[in-house]
Every structure is written in C-alpha cells, then in structure tokens.
Design a protein around this nucleic acid. Structure first.
Length: 557
RNA sequence: GCGCCAGUAGCUCAGUUGGAUAGAGCAACAGCCUUCUAAGCUGUGGGUCGGGGGUUCGAUUCCCUCCUGGCGCGCCA
C-alpha cells in the first residue's frame, strides 16, 4: 500500500543522486519529535555527509533547492538543527489520503506484503489436564492478535493448538480421577503426588461412575492403583484417561470460544507416537551422529547449538525408558516444516524458554534444510491477577490458579483481551480486575466504548447516516491534520501545548482560524458538519479511539 | 553461580534503525465552561532514563560491569 510519500521519496532520491550519492542510498522519512517542526523529516543530508565529505547543512541546502515541490506533494521544506530537512505536506495531498481512507473502508491499511505465504502460529497449547489459566489467556490474546496482523498483511495464517496429551501429566490426571472415584465410593481421598486437586476432577469422576460402573467396582477392591505410563496402563486407568482428556478438551474449547479465539488445526502429541514420527525422528538424530549414550540414557549434543548442557532424549530404563518432552516436540516441528510452513511462530510463556534451544538444536541436527531461527518464538512474561488491592491466586473451579473463564466472567471478553494486549509480552502483567470493571476514564476499555458511544450520539442527534456521506463531494481540506490518513502507522500523540498543535486542529481554540465553511451541496455541508461540529470532543474521541486501536494492534505485534 | 526478561515523571506505561528540547494517560496545581453525553476543556509544575564506565559528532537506544525484581537452569512438561 502506498503511504502517499512515494513521490517525496522519489524526489529525494533524485536529488541525492544528482549530488553524487552512493547508488543504493534510500531516503528515510520519519516523524519529527515535535509536530511543530513539520509533518515529516529526513536525515538524508546527515547520512550523505560522510560519504560525500561535505557539511550536512550545505548538502541540505542543495537538496532543498533541487526538490520539485509540486512533484513531491509538499507545501514546504525547511532545514533545521544539525541538518534535518522538515517537510509540510500539501493540503490537497492530505485530502487525497483521507478520501482514499474513506473509500477503502474497513480494508484501509491492509497490505499484500505477505504475498499469500503460509505461516503457522502455535499458541495456547495447553495440557488437557484442567481449565485454561491466565497465562493461556495472555497467549490466546497475543497469538490471535499476531495471527490477525499477519492476515492483515497478506500472509496465509494457520492458527494451531498442540495438545500435550501424552506423558506424565496425563498419567497424573488419570490417577487423580481414579482417586476421586474411590472417594465417591466411600474410601479416604488420596490424591497422588503431582496430581490435580481442582473441583473439575470430581465432575470427571462422577461421569466415570456413570459410564464405567463395573470398572469402578473393581477399582475399589484393588489394593494397588494403576502403574505405568499411558502406553502400558489398562482398564480403569485407560478409561479414566480417555474420559478426562475428552472432557477437558471440551472444556478448553468452550473457554476458547468464550474468548472468541478459533483455531484452524489441533495437533495431538499422541499422534506423533502412533504414526511413528517420534521413532523416525529419533532414528534420524542417531544417524546424524549428534547423539550418544551415557548412564543408560540417550543424549543429544545440544551444546553444539549453544545449549549449556547436552539434553536427554530417552531416559534410562530405571527412569522408565521413555522419551523426554522435547523429542516429540522436534518431531512435531518437522511436521510443520513438511506441511509447507516455511515460517512458524510459537507463542509461549517465558517459563518454557529453555525448550527453545533444544527444539532448534534438534531441527538443525536433522540437517533437512530447516533454517537456524526456526521456529520463531514470542515469549511472554508472567501474569498476576489483582482484585481489591491483593493478588488473587485461587479459582473456585481449578483450585490452585485463576482461569481464563474466571476473568471473562469478572470483566467480559473484550476487556480481558484488551488488557492482555495492553502491555508488550516482555513485561510482567498485572491484571487489575477492579480497573477492568470500572466505568471511569482510568479504564481504557471504557474510554474506547465511550468514544464510540459519543460519536454514535453525534450522528444520531445530527440525523446523519455515516454511510451516506460521500467523501468525493466533501471539502476535505478542512481536515488538514493528516494523522488519520497515516494509519496503520502508530499515531504519535501531539502533546498538550498550543505550539504543538498542527494546522487546522479542530479544537475550539483553533476553529476560528479555520477556513470559512462554503456550502458545496447538502451532502458536503453535512460532511463538514459531522467533523466540525463535534470539534474538540468529537475529533479528539475519534483520534483517541484510532490511537487506542492502533496501539492495541501495535502491542499485539 | 549461569541464562533470558524487566527497571524511564507521584502511579501505570510508550519511546521505531543511535539523532532535534525524553513523551502519554491518570494523579497534583491554576483558570475556564454550566445548549450537542461532563470520559469536561485549557494551561502549569513534575525526570541523576536503576548506578558506574566505554564506543560515537551524538546514547533511553550499542558494548562492559554492578544493583534490584521476575522466570528458567531435572533422565519434569
């Protein structure tokens, strides 16, 4: 998409070339720190000073003299500071941008830079061992926003959820369920070590009693509870596991639906075992010569790829002889590559950051042409939930942690998503439930909602249908602040001082300086009225709403 | 002890590839408004950019070091 500055760039490039600049010189345009300097600025003269061996300000003089203002679409060019050149855009050019914005409607700002290339974004990827917690919520918000941004810029995005439905956690889930079943049959409750204490396990146990009465009967007379991993457990263990995983997957799906997140694909870790991919991956890694056996365990030389120690792939017989977590994860990422995803992004909590090196090392050791930085990781810091000035840690249903569902019930879906995107992932996030619920200007969500409500109110009172406004018939030159036309670039706030206000600011203070309103037909008149009458409040609302939207998207990136 | 992330106004946070006088919201203070939704409007004050070195014409930004907080350092996931 053109940002309307191509003509200016072309003029600058031409001017630079005529001064003898290196062939690949590309003029960089940026927003001046202080809007009173102008709309755009370039440091071109300073960049050229060194290669040309001349003073920046002299070069700036010649560049300015050389530019064809008409062709570049600018009203003025001024030299400032050590050699910056400040530009003011031509009002007609700005109006063109606004007309283009209105014409493009909701599609404004879309680009095709992704060129339809495939990318898989993996996020949430919870164990099916309980309801989603707040960390999953942050991932869901981030992952979904990243996916939307990629779609917006022309990528073919697949949102993927990886189910860790194998391994020790699932064994614990099955054992916890059976412990609850026995409790319901009158035996003392003994939740196994590493087991799950949440209320939801009781629901599963109840279902188990209904569907597997015979197994439950048998269970109560057994002296020893099931042993072995998910591949060797039988009878009640298998039944409990299958039932629990099924119920919890349904529950997680319901949570995600309530959160408004939809996945394109769900990938089951267990399938990597059943279809032989894990074994094939291990065989390929052994064949690569990057593995060795020690103390009865199989190691991968991850230190060859920057890890601080080699990692166990297959545990020794004494520890069960199973594969460690990252082995199926490597096999899983091979499938992403083989499914044609030349780009893969994983959204995870920073508590998993130690797996990054391991997975990448495994993929490199395979030597099948996967790039070194594959997959990309977006790691986010931890979330704490605050209510009444204190940290909340307990959820009624999950027991030991606050769930996504809790947050949605407390403050609503949109507010939850907004609060998760409000901070960049690198920062720890304190989720203030009271703030998210409050109807005050301190709550950004409420602020945005009010902006929309007030704008709608203005149209309603004015008896105007916004859709009926024809920008082609309107005098857009009254809208000389080009801020809105620069979407999706994050808008720089213009500060509170009068000096900083751009030309044609629609605040009351500036209105009297605006050009007189000359009717050009009823429609045009109404269009101006739409924008001019609300003046300070309306324009500011719109600008702020746009800012928040852009800021939210920006943070999502 | 090692690795990753963070530390910017009273509070919560932005700050793009190294660039001009480091910004916003809220809070504080002053003035104004009481006809369109008062989320009032306008203005003012407020900073050793965690500390100290270094590179550079120029550092919140890059490098080194120290301090503080979070997370991770398992044949757990």
């Amino acid at each position: 998409m053109s940002d309307g500055l191509d003509a200016l760039r072309a003029e600058l490039t031409r001017a630079a070339q005529s001064l003898g600049a290196p062939a690949r010189t590309e003029p960089v345009l940026e927003r001046p720190r202080d809007p009173s300097f102008g709309d755009w600025a370039t440091n071109l003269a300073m960049v050229l000073a060194k290669p040309l061996g001349r003073k920046p300000r002299d070069l700036a003089q010649e560049i300015v003299a050389s530019i064809d203002r008409q062709a570049a679409g600018i009203a003025s060019a001024e030299i400032a500071g050590p050699g910056f050149i400040n530009f003011r855009l031509d009002a007609a050019r700005v109006a063109q941008g606004i007309a283009a914005l209105v014409a493009a409607g909701e599609g404004y700002g879309r680009t095709t830079s992704g060129a339809g290339r495939p990318v898989v974004v993996e996020f949430v990827s919870a164990n099916p061992t309980g309801p989603l917690h707040v960390g999953h919520g942050r991932q869901a918000a981030l992952g979904d926003a990243i996916s939307s941004l990629l779609e917006w810029t022309g990528w073919k995005v697949s949102r993927e959820f990886y189910y860790n439905d194998s391994g020790v956690q699932i064994e614990n889930l099955a054992r916890s369920t059976l412990a609850r079943v026995r409790e319901m049959r009158g035996e003392p409750l003994e939740i196994p070590e590493g087991g799950y204490h949440g209320e939801y396990i009781k629901d599963i146990a109840e279902d188990f009693l209904k569907k597997h009465a015979a197994l439950a009967e048998q269970l109560s007379t057994e002296q020893t509870l099931i042993v072995g991993d998910i591949f060797t457990m039988t009878g009640a263990g298998t039944a409990a596991r299958e039932l629990a995983v099924e119920m919890l997957r349904k529950e997680q799906d319901a949570d995600l639906q309530a959160f408004g997140v939809k996945f394109d694909t769900y990938y089951l870790e267990s399938s990597l075992y059943t279809d032989g991919r894990v074994d094939r991956t291990v065989a390929a890694l052994i064949a690569s010569g990057r593995t060795y056996e020690k103390d009865g365990a199989l190691f991968l030389r991850t230190t060859d790829y920057g890890d601080d120690q080699d990692r166990v792939m297959r545990k020794s017989a004494a520890k069960g002889g199973t594969y460690t977590y990252f082995v199926p994860d490597v096999a899983y990422h091979v499938t992403k590559w083989e499914r044609g995803f030349t780009r893969a992004i994983n959204v995870q909590g920073s508590d998993h950051h130690s797996t990054v090196t391991r997975v990448r090392a495994g993929l490199q050791a395979l030597g099948i042409g996967i790039p070194e930085g594959y997959p990309e990781y977006v790691l986010h810091q931890m979330v704490t939930v605050m209510m009444g000035g204190e940290e909340v840690k307990i959820s009624k249903r999950a027991g030991s942690y606050v769930t996504v569902r809790d947050l949605i019930e407390w403050v609503g879906r949109d507010a939850v998503r907004y609060f998760f995107l409000m901070r960049k992932g690198d920062s720890q996030l304190s989720f203030d439930v009271d703030l998210a619920r409050s109807q005050s200007e301190e709550n950004p969500v409420y602020y945005i909602q009010m902006a929309h409500a007030r704008l709608s109110g203005i149209f309603r009172v004015g008896g105007i249908d916004p859709a009926s406004v024809d920008p082609a018939a309107a005098d857009l030159s009254v809208l000389a602040d080009e801020g809105a036309a620069r979407f999706p670039e994050p808008r720089r706030r213009r500060g509170g001082s009068a000096r900083a206000a751009p030309r044609g600011d629609l605040s009351p203070r500036h209105r009297e300086q605006d050009p007189p309103l000359v009717p050009q037909g009823a429609r045009a008149q109404r269009t101006r009225a739409d924008h001019a009458r609300p003046s300070g409040a309306g324009a500011r609302c719109a600008a702020r709403a746009a800012e928040w939207t852009v800021v939210a998207r920006h943070h999502g990136a």
